[in-house]
Design a protein around this nucleic acid. Sequence first.
DNA 1: AACACTTCAGGACATATGTCCTTTCCAAGA
DNA 2: TCTTGGAAAGGACATATGTCCTGAAGTGTT
Lengths: 231, 231
Amino acid sequence: MREINDFKQVKSYLSAYQIESIFNEQILPHLSLYTFEQGEFICSQGQASQYLYVLVKGKIKVYTTSAEGRTLILSFKTPLEVIGDIEYVQDINIINTVEAVSSVQMIGVQYHWLRKYGRDHAPLLQFLLDIITQKFHLKTNSMSFNLLYPVEVRFASYLLSVSFNESDSLNKEQLRISIKDAANFIGTSYRHLNRVIGQFCTEGLIERNKGFILVKDREGLRALAGDNIYE
Amino acid sequence: MREINDFKQVKSYLSAYQIESIFNEQILPHLSLYTFEQGEFICSQGQASQYLYVLVKGKIKVYTTSAEGRTLILSFKTPLEVIGDIEYVQDINIINTVEAVSSVQMIGVQYHWLRKYGRDHAPLLQFLLDIITQKFHLKTNSMSFNLLYPVEVRFASYLLSVSFNESDSLNKEQLRISIKDAANFIGTSYRHLNRVIGQFCTEGLIERNKGFILVKDREGLRALAGDNIYE
DNA sequence: AACACTTCAGGACATATGTCCTTTCCAAGA
DNA sequence: TCTTGGAAAGGACATATGTCCTGAAGTGTT
């Protein structure tokens, strides 16, 4: 983590995401911009939490590790997103580990200042409400999805969702997905996911070349996934 | 659903749960008390939502039905709880079906009035934030729990959690649990749950007599469930 | 009591998924 | 160039879970 002393940058992010109003005059001076390198932890499960972060650039993953050491990825997130909100409101330790997937920039504020100056600031409260309800809704969906459908369907949905987002950038159909990550996200074992991938290849839905996955039949995947997409 | 015109009653509930402040003077006159009979629907997945309800008495269950008709119970809830909060904030249709498990009383307000008079009322916003973050936290837990552990463990946890709450009342250890409900809650099939129940009986953890389940070895269950309890 | 009807318990089998291992391959570093 | 470590792919097997079906037992109705 590196702190960047560039208040202009902070302001410009706030303005870009139209959230200037959520921090009032008293809080503004206590905002800082932080950079995290790829693979760096933004926060770790179980630790005490001190900062509310607003993700403004890059991509992060949120996951939990069970007592037995198994990992379950709860979500990948891109701006605009907030980390530490639940912990702030509930005043509890960090629930999930958050790790930078790419290089990441976040605006951070200490709870301290939020408690002091933000408790009754309606725009902030509304903003948090909005973000958290979104998260909740999304989680509700993925939870029922995970419990109701087999790995095959979940993976098809995952592929669609990921390829959609990624392909914004460059490589239209070629995806560099980490199969391990995918397995943890879907809540299955690496082995089994591999099996399903093999099956998809046989069926001509996808193709794989050394670590990459090429979506060949988007419609076929969609048919498999049904309407259910990790939104 | 039956509307009860008893403003005193409403006031007394608000006071009992120490939430008088969340509704301001303008909103108060628009609060009503509603009664739902056992088995009655409070709201149904996909419908347009109009009311924010505060559960003040009784027990409800929240569940979702997949396109294929499978049911997944997301939670059982007792006061103090709010229904329709996510929908209110996000302005979307009802996400999950909510059904009265016992006879139930709820305080209801139309979104209309909340939008008009409550948008900037910090105590209301704080209250919603608090409730929703709790829900979120709980859901996060149960989601990872469901994905990370086998039915055996989940059911043990379920039994502990349910027997704990129920036994507050009368029958110390005797539980009338609906096995179907339990199966849907855990996200498994009736058949399989039955199998696990049989196994638990063999191991002397529980005993069953015609539809009831008797917890015999709470410690054994706890050992199986580990620390993980549906909170 | 006799009947139809539902719920409950469980058998038999198929499928989904997990665990453990082995082999291959490729890339980073000595 | 030669290791060496780790990712990738998949074989073999065990286990967890789902589906379909059947028979027993309870419940209400006539």
